[in-house]
Simulated assay, not measured.
Amino acid sequence: MEFERLLEDAKKGNLNAQEEIIRMYKPLLIKNSMEHNVFDEDLFQELSITLLNCIMKFRI
């Protein structure tokens, strides 16, 4: 239930809620930002932006 509230707040533009969701998914974002065992910061940023865009489109 807490996550649902966090999503609602993030969709409304609450930056703290958006940051919290990014923190929750940071390990997954980092894992998917690795190319040949090297961290790609640009890819991390793109994935983070994609996550935020998905939050805005997600229907609760």
Rank of each mutant, 00 (worst) to 15 (best):
M1I: 06
E2I: 06
E2L: 08
E2M: 06
F3W: 09
E4F: 12
E4I: 14
R5D: 11
R5F: 12
L6N: 11
L7P: 06
E8S: 12
D9T: 10
A10S: 08
A10K: 10
K11Q: 13
L15P: 14
L15T: 15
N16P: 08
A17M: 03
E19A: 13
E20G: 05
E20K: 08
E20V: 01
I21A: 02
I21V: 03
I22S: 08
I22A: 08
R23T: 09
R23S: 14
M24P: 04
M24T: 14
M24Y: 12
Y25S: 02
Y25N: 04
K26H: 13
K26D: 09
P27D: 09
P27E: 13
L29T: 10
I30A: 02
K31R: 09
K31W: 03
N32R: 02
N32D: 01
N32F: 01
S33V: 01
M34R: 06
M34V: 06
E35H: 10
N37F: 11
N37G: 09
V38K: 15
V38G: 13
F39S: 03
F39E: 04
F39M: 07
D40C: 07
E41I: 11
E41K: 04
D42H: 02
L43K: 04
F44M: 04
F44G: 02
E46A: 01
E46T: 00
E46Y: 03
L47V: 00
L47F: 00
S48N: 02
S48F: 00
S48M: 00
S48G: 03
I49Q: 11
I49G: 01
I49S: 04
T50M: 10
L51H: 04
L51W: 06
L51N: 07
L51Y: 03
N53R: 13
N53Q: 12
N53C: 09
I55L: 00
I55D: 00
M56V: 13
M56F: 07
K57H: 08
K57M: 07
F58R: 10
F58H: 12
F58W: 13
F58D: 10
F58P: 11
I60N: 15
